[in-house]
Computed example of a mutant assay.
Amino acid sequence: MTQGIKETCKDAGASGGVPPVPPAPAALAAKVRALAPTMTRSMQRVAEAVASDPAGCAALTVTGLAERTGTSEATVVRTARLLGYPGYRDLRLALAGLAAQQQSGRAPALTTDITVDDPIADVVAKLAHDEQQTLADTAAGLDTVQLGAAVAALVAARRIDVYGIGASGLVAQDLTQKLLRIGLMAHAPGDPHLAVTNAVQLRAGDVAVAITHSGSTRDVIEPLRVAFERGATTVAITGRPDAPVTQYADHVLTTSTARESELRPAAMSSRTGQLLVVDCLFVGVAQRTYETAAPALAASYEALAHRRSPRGRRA
């Protein structure tokens, strides 16, 4: 019953009133990287073309871009819409804006992938660039309305469960540790079975957060689904805004990732964007609960400082 009500509300919110705002030019490359793995091969060719040469593609008509990528006009329009633009004209405007930013130095071109022969200095430079770009892309594409709603839910929560597996599990533990330090009741069960049994105990007024870059990790989706059905407020942090996990999310926070390569798998590159979102959630909660959060943080700092004191000076 609860699920039906919540899904009806989600559908109503998605279909009514104000149309979604197209991504800002700075977020275009991030959207391409996030959505390319889910596109057809022909749509990938269009997406790769606009991301690699925004200035050149901005000068092309829909027919010209279709000819350049060996696709059809319909494919170009579908790609534009998948990237979040009402039509190709809107995509061209975003491409022109992105090209202007790149020419001014505010949106640097992507570096090449790390190779096995790269000197360590080049590895450092490329990783630093990719990390900075991931942070910038995630910030540009983050929906602050959804973020604010997620923060409000965390502030009011009786209990918070955070689900994540593998590298995303480390991010889940990071969020949980932060929330615990300001006095919130938070858990990050590492075992998938424990996550589901914990989710069964949730109810309205509780919050469940799922962290999964692919958005299709079953061991993360299942406890979120259970929490959703129990009436808890649910949040998904994912790199795929149309992924299966979002079906059970009241609030979706999308992340960007650097390009995946042989020496830099998605699990490694996705963590940077996830940690930024987690930090935004924590700071937002700490701001709204400052009167209790500040003393709690001070107490935790004092406790940790006590443990770091020389053995002979410990009380």
Rank of each mutant, 00 (worst) to 15 (best):
R45H: 12
V277W: 03
V62L: 08
A152C: 08
V283L: 13
K10F: 07
G312E: 15
L93I: 12
A128Q: 13
V285Q: 09
D117K: 08
L83H: 02
Y88G: 11
R159W: 00
T40R: 06
R225P: 08
E302F: 04
D219E: 15
L253K: 02
C57D: 11
R106N: 14
A315T: 15
L127R: 02
R106C: 06
T2P: 02
A152K: 07
E7A: 15
Y290K: 05
D242N: 13
Q133H: 08
A286K: 02
P241V: 02
D242W: 00
A58C: 06
A150R: 03
A99S: 09
P86S: 02
C280H: 11
A100K: 13
K178N: 10
S214G: 14
G13I: 03
L276K: 09
V46N: 01
R225E: 14
V62F: 00
G17H: 13
Q274T: 10
A294H: 10
G284H: 06
P310T: 01
G215I: 03
G166F: 01
A26V: 12
V278F: 06
A199N: 08
S104V: 04
P19W: 00
G239M: 02
M39E: 06
T61N: 10
Q132Y: 00
T234P: 07
A14G: 10
R259Y: 01
K6V: 12
V62A: 15
D53Q: 09
S214E: 04
R259D: 14
R81Q: 15
E291K: 03
V155M: 11
P241R: 05
P25L: 05
V207D: 07
A186E: 12
I182G: 06
L98H: 01
Q287D: 15
S300T: 14
A121W: 03
A199Q: 04
C57E: 05
S269T: 15
P244C: 08
V200E: 14
V209P: 01
Y290I: 10
G166Q: 04
K178A: 09
L175A: 11
E229L: 10
L65V: 04
K31H: 15
A100Y: 00
G231Y: 04
G84T: 05
Q177K: 06
R313E: 15
P265L: 11
A150L: 02
A96D: 13
I211T: 05
